[in-house]
Design a protein around this nucleic acid. Structure first.
Length: 197
DNA sequence: ACATTAAGTTGCA
DNA sequence: TGCAACTTAATGT
């Protein structure tokens, strides 16, 4: 995305988070641009029953809450560290000034936003029409595409069953049952509880 | 090595 | 699908 040095040059501050630390919450007014240097962050919501829905899991090198910086709207989701994280943050106004001075970054930002929207479209269509196993397959196909793997069983799914459930709106039990079925069908392999697709 | 906690499983309503 | 009981793996002391 945007070079670390440049962000630091503009006065970005380094912040450290432990697992489960909240970076921002649903309803907050977006005031910073965030870039993950190390660690992973999840974007989530909770339904009225307290069930978690994970909007996305964001790896290092990517920014979070980007889309909220170009509108006057409040955050529609929480951002929570899922492991120890190092994150750079730059005040929104400074960030916009940076972009004015380095407009070449606009195209990168559009690319990031577009990729995210693409993921959203794929998942939404899958969640609206498909059965549980197809929802999981859509998610796993996306993961595989994202890391450039194509061979069968070449990707170890880096998510717990609970996380798979929260990303697809299914329950853990359903994920477990569906994954076992997929294994029977030879679509995935399971080696000491790790899922290979 | 033992206790504790998290993750994964399974049967049952 | 969800709860609860149970197993297994991971982590702490």
């Amino acid at each position: 995305m945007i070079k670390q040095d440049l962000l630091l040059q503009f006065g970005a501050e380094e912040r450290y988070y432990d697992a489960d630390d909240i970076i921002f919450s649903e309803g907050d007014v977006p005031t910073f641009f965030y870039l993950i240097i190390k660690g992973k962050v999840k974007l989530n919501n909770y339904n009225d029953l307290g069930k978690e829905f994970i909007q996305a899991i964001v790896p290092s090198g990517q920014s979070i809450g980007l889309s909220s910086l170009f509108t006057e709207m409040i955050y529609p989701k929480n951002a929570v560290a899922i492991e120890k994280c190092e994150i750079l943050r730059l005040p929104k106004t400074t960030f916009l000034i940076l972009l004015e001075q380095y407009p070449e970054y606009y195209s990168k930002i559009i690319r990031c936003l577009s990729e995210h929207i693409h993921y959203k479209f794929m998942m939404l269509q899958s969640m609206a029409f498909h059965n549980p196993s197809q929802k999981l397959l859509t998610l796993m196909n996306y993961l595989k595409y994202e890391c450039g793997e194509h061979e069968p069983f070449s990707l170890q799914i880096p998510l717990t069953r609970q996380q798979l459930a929260s990303l697809t709106g299914l329950s853990v039990e359903t994920v477990i049952r569906v994954i076992k079925n997929l294994e029977k069908q030879g679509v995935v392999q399971i080696q000491n509880r790790k899922i290979f697709y």
